[in-house]
Amino acid sequence: MTAMAARSLGYRVQVMDPDSSCPARFVVDACFEGSWNDARAAANLARGCDVVTLEIEQVAIECLEAAGRYAPVRPGAAMMRIIQDRILQKEWLRGCGFPVGEYRAVTSAQEMAEAISMLGGRCFIKSAHGGYDGRSQVKVGFGSTCDAVEAWTMLGQRPCVVEKALELDREISVMVARSPRGEVKSFPSAMNHHENQILVWSVIPSSVAPEIEAGAQRIAREIADGFQLEGLLAVEMFLTKSGELLVNELAPRPHNSYHASERACVTSQFEQAVRAVCNLPLGDVSIVQPAAIVNLLGDLWLDKEGQPREPRFDQALAVPGVRLHLYEKHQPRKGRKMGHLSGVGAIPAEAVERVLEAKARL
């Protein structure tokens, strides 16, 4: 989607991916096959580029440094070192004065047990490195029998962050863009609904109270400036029932919760990513109309017995205002994001209603 936005601005595009038949392969000029820690492939990619960016935060620092010897890498390795480590990320946020929920960093099963007890028994435990969409995460104290020892083993016996469970009103995110020249623009906040730690649907705008919106925008912009961001940064936040805004996690790339920006805003997040890393003037982020997305997971391509089936896309597209976006991923798996439906409405609730109805028809 970013490559297609770059093409509309006249750029040629190269990608590096572990899969030579990756989704971007058929809309770019060249594809370099390489794992996220293949520094040689990253260097080969960068040799033919004027600027390099990324769309997944798992790319090894060595790759970013190798690419940086041939072209600017945006966002850069210094920022990515912090974001790739949840412990460093939490410490950076707290050290800079940004609001975060209670947490403890742990390096052993004993420390994990102590942290769970100190934080009230109901916690989310996340591996310090890797994982998203609910992977490398464990819940304890929610009626499950999972204890600290089991959680420590399930997460690979590696450093983890133990987060206290919060009483949430809702989850929101703010996408902020910053160019090398220092121009900053942030999109109106999106409201996000998760199930099993995977985003199910999202809508722009979030319709939070004006004072909450102003606070979320300020936090996102200050984080971008603090990092001297060059590119995009999605700031995921919790809004508690007491009205407190807390930063959850940072994603330095186009983000699932802003896929609806293609339809909601004057400038999509994908075009904004290109503008930001290429040091162009940033685009207008004003809302044209409310829009929502609902994710399509690989489960939809399987029947109750696990046999392949084709979703009824024609039925979904019969819902007014709904569009289909498929990612060209060849192998559907349970929990894997294969695409999304987007929908528009006169108000945010109508946009959400339309995409949910369309998904139900699949």
Rank of each mutant, 00 (worst) to 15 (best):
P23T: 02
T53S: 14
S8W: 04
P188E: 12
R40A: 14
A291Y: 09
A291M: 09
V277S: 07
F238D: 04
V140G: 03
A358Y: 11
S261E: 03
V100Q: 05
K241D: 09
L166Y: 06
E271F: 00
A5G: 10
K164A: 14
D38P: 06
A148M: 10
F26Y: 13
L199E: 04
D169L: 11
R361S: 14
G321I: 07
L246I: 05
R94F: 00
I82D: 00
Y11P: 08
Q289D: 01
C49A: 15
P281Q: 06
N44L: 13
A209D: 14
I293W: 10
A41M: 06
V176E: 01
E310F: 12
V106M: 13
P72R: 11
H129Y: 14
I293E: 02
D133P: 02
Y70E: 12
Q331M: 10
Y70L: 08
I223C: 13
T53Y: 01
D50P: 02
Y258N: 08
S286V: 01
M338H: 10
A60Q: 03
R178L: 00
R81L: 07
R135F: 06
F313I: 12
A276C: 08
P18H: 14
E33H: 05
V200D: 11
E167T: 12
P159K: 14
D85G: 03
T267V: 04
R40N: 12
A113H: 08
R218F: 00
Q269F: 02
A214S: 12
S136I: 00
S179W: 03
I293A: 02
G143D: 05
G121A: 11
N37I: 00
L168I: 14
G143I: 11
F32H: 15
V355H: 08
A224G: 09
N256W: 10
A24T: 09
M175K: 01
A358M: 10
Q137F: 09
T53M: 02
L296M: 14
F313Q: 09
G34S: 08
I125Y: 10
G298W: 09
S342Q: 04
L302A: 07
A349I: 04
A260C: 08
Y258R: 06
V277W: 11
E357L: 15
M175E: 10
H129L: 13
E65T: 01
P290H: 10
K164S: 01
P320A: 14
R309T: 15
S189C: 15
L199A: 09
G134D: 06
P281D: 07
S179T: 10
L168T: 11
P210K: 06
I172F: 12
A67E: 06
Q315N: 15
I82W: 03
A214K: 12
M1N: 09
V13R: 07
I204T: 11
A214G: 06
P252H: 06
D19A: 13
P290D: 03
A39P: 02
G97W: 13
Q110N: 11
Y11G: 03
R333T: 06
D85A: 05
P252D: 11
K359Y: 14
F227G: 07
R333M: 13
A251R: 05
V266D: 03
L362C: 13
V51F: 03
R135G: 04
M118T: 09
E55I: 03
A3W: 02
